[in-house]
Computed example of a mutant assay.
Amino acid sequence: MSLKSNLLATLAAATLATSAFAQDTIAVDDAYARSAGKTAKAGAAFMMIENTGETDDRLIGVESEASARVELHTHQIDDNGVARMIHVEEGFVIPAGETHMLKRGGDHVMFMGLTAPFEQGATVPVTLIFEKAGEVEIEVPVDLERQDAGGHGTHSN
């Protein structure tokens, strides 16, 4: 086997091992996306992210072709009691053996500059990027009718 063949085989094995690690340690459940309507320029996605691994991980980024920009956001209450969304550049820690909720009124994935309207029943391709687990690709169903049990409203920027 040539050096080039060995290198390609090693690279392929490392790539497969990283994908297997992500699938073995990170589980995404109850994901859904929504926007305020057909003319909305922004939308959001919510989900439960479970880290079944033995070490903490961190969701450090997100990518999607559904919008011009995709960021990790949370809500922050100012001194006047007004909630506003802020970009969380450092991402969200997903503790070992625990679940982190991305939910309305809290941490979430924010889509800005939608390339097409979010339509009920469609899916949004999303790649979650973790510090240790690497990339996890998911299809997030659009659910414009879902009501939040906490009573939070829709997101806008």
Score class of each variant (00 low, 15 high):
85 M>A: 03
104 R>P: 00
86 I>K: 14
81 G>F: 00
90 E>A: 04
76 Q>L: 11
85 M>P: 04
73 H>M: 01
90 E>Q: 13
94 I>L: 13
71 E>W: 05
75 H>G: 01
75 H>F: 10
75 H>E: 12
75 H>T: 15
89 E>D: 15
106 G>F: 10
73 H>T: 06
82 V>C: 01
100 H>L: 09
81 G>V: 04
70 V>Y: 12
78 D>Y: 03
80 N>W: 03
104 R>Y: 05
100 H>P: 02
74 T>W: 11
75 H>Q: 09
62 V>C: 09
72 L>D: 07
73 H>V: 03
104 R>S: 08
97 G>W: 13
104 R>A: 13
101 M>I: 02
87 H>F: 06
82 V>G: 01
88 V>K: 13
97 G>Y: 14
103 K>A: 04
70 V>G: 04
80 N>C: 05
101 M>W: 03
103 K>G: 01
93 V>M: 14
67 S>V: 08
88 V>R: 14
103 K>M: 06
92 F>C: 08
94 I>N: 11
81 G>W: 00
64 S>E: 03
99 T>M: 02
62 V>P: 00
70 V>E: 09
81 G>S: 08
93 V>A: 15
89 E>P: 01
102 L>G: 04
90 E>T: 07
69 R>A: 07
65 E>T: 14
76 Q>V: 15
70 V>D: 06
77 I>H: 12
79 D>I: 05
69 R>M: 10
100 H>C: 06
62 V>K: 07
79 D>Q: 11
99 T>H: 01
76 Q>S: 06
62 V>H: 10
98 E>C: 06
101 M>P: 02
105 G>L: 02
106 G>P: 05
96 A>R: 14
95 P>L: 13
66 A>R: 15
69 R>G: 05
73 H>R: 15
105 G>I: 03
76 Q>M: 11
86 I>L: 08
88 V>G: 05
67 S>L: 06
95 P>R: 11
101 M>F: 07
86 I>T: 12
70 V>S: 13
102 L>A: 04
96 A>Y: 13
64 S>P: 08
92 F>H: 14
